[in-house]
Design a protein around this nucleic acid. Sequence first.
DNA 1: GTCTATAGTCGGATAGAC
DNA 2: GTCTATCCGACTATAGAC
Lengths: 243, 243
Amino acid sequence: MVHNVGMAGPPKQRRSEATRERLVTAAIETFGADGFTRTSTRTVVERAGANLVSIHYHFGGKEQLYCAAAEHIAKHIHDRSAAVLERGRALSRDRSASRDALIEGVCAIYDEFTGIFLAGGLPEGWRQFLVREQMEPSGTTAFRSLFGVIRPFFECVSTLIGRLQKRRPSDQRVQLTTAFIFGHVYVFRTNPHGALRMLGWTTFGPREIAAIRTTAREHIGRMLGAVPPPASVARGRRSAERR
Amino acid sequence: MVHNVGMAGPPKQRRSEATRERLVTAAIETFGADGFTRTSTRTVVERAGANLVSIHYHFGGKEQLYCAAAEHIAKHIHDRSAAVLERGRALSRDRSASRDALIEGVCAIYDEFTGIFLAGGLPEGWRQFLVREQMEPSGTTAFRSLFGVIRPFFECVSTLIGRLQKRRPSDQRVQLTTAFIFGHVYVFRTNPHGALRMLGWTTFGPREIAAIRTTAREHIGRMLGAVPPPASVARGRRSAERR
DNA sequence: GTCTATAGTCGGATAGAC
DNA sequence: GTCTATCCGACTATAGAC
């Protein structure tokens, strides 16, 4: 049996479409809060105000609903961030861009990323869904959807950093630097309770996000501000640090 | 009914103790791989070569077994890292320590942290358990055990950074800088599949860990290498970057 | 398209023999 | 202390009425 994956036909049956949408958003929130296995389809349909079997009718089962939820989030992020990423790409192609402008480009993408992962750029439940799936994929198809929408952030930043460090974007040091910058966001997601407690905060509200962005901006500037010294000098510095 | 929480008596019943230990290690691996809810007690006892009801006899139930597993990991990490942390604390009290020495102290703790979270410092299953519980605590008691053993890492680093930045360790900028440095580890845990794919790696083996440590050391040196400029200058720099 | 009723499975916990 | 047998609740999924 083929499931009703497309949109409903022209007649009054776009009530079907509405149910479908309610199911998806309810699914995101419930899966996000409780994870795939701890979520029962009963909870989802209850929250969506739909019938128990509607999930099977519309999607074919619990797992397909999960994948539909992932795609929904991916599309949302894509739409939201397309402009920022496009600006970043344009900047990285701009031969006349100054160091400060390139660094600012990195910061802009960092800010967008914090918006998605920490601030209100995504509803809390959606964010939980995203983080959970990144950390331990429940299924490869859902992971692919979300990875496909996060990847451009990495690629854009690594291109900018490549120009700043005068290295190819595929250079391992460039890639690692990129990862570290995103780590400035992820750290608050991997250990949210611990981080809040360390910082004496209770939530990641606007004030807290602002503090994170300001300090991160400072660090990104430091990390990328100067042309890296030749390898020989770096080695000397490092061994000096060791003693 | 009180459960057999202590160790067995002197007679031959330390077979009990052995079963208990097998249950704990099997629990860590299974909970780590599958999470609390997805793990069935049947799987645990099977892996431990014990009987289904032994969990109830020894611990009182699935949840208490989970807490015992968390404590076991906490003790392991504590024993493993006590020396490194003690050296760090001594360094932060040493008035005559140079900037380079303080930075090297931060790097040493960072290296220890990567050892625990990325390299073989903990068996893979144990690490998964730890990360999972940090990200979303299954219960407050288990979280407390693990938080209590991670916290000293943060405190030790923030004290060192406080000295480097000439600020109090409780200063928010110091705390955030500390968090960012730990983010250089956590990023690989929050998004392991994505990170591996970006970097063209397949696992976090010794070569990869070495690359991470080397580049991180470089960045930590940059982040902490110079005395931060006075606030007015920093503000000027930042607004200059904006335009 | 939506609903009720129910089949079939699995997992945690307990009783009681040994 | 360990084992077998069993209960009970929760969940996904399906059949079939409307």
